[in-house]
């Protein structure tokens, strides 16, 4: 299935949980902001979410800035 991650299409296996996807990217969830289809997710929600076709996922972080 196709999922748009940070504006780029990615082909991912069916029934992939969001947490498995995050771990496949080597990311520690607590350091990032996850937004699925324009909704910011709480960290304790991540485990229960299965990615769906055409989902739009944003993985963000706070960086230095003035």
């Amino acid at each position: 299935m196709l999922v748009v991650v940070n504006g780029r299409e990615e082909r991912l296996p069916e029934d992939l949980s969001l947490m498995d996807f995050i771990q496949s990217k080597g990311l520690a969830p607590e350091s990032f902001v996850f937004m699925l289809n324009d909704r910011v997710l709480k960290w304790d929600e991540l485990n229960g979410i299965i990615l769906q076709e055409n989902d739009r996922l944003e993985i963000l972080r706070f960086v230095g800035g003035g």
Partner: peptide, 19 residues
């Protein structure tokens, strides 16, 4: 203290300035 919000770049080391 100010900071900015950016997309993660999967190709480089990721740190969160809030830490």
């Amino acid at each position: 203290v100010t900071m900015a919000l950016r997309r993660v770049d999967f190709d480089s080391q990721q740190e969160n300035v809030l830490n």
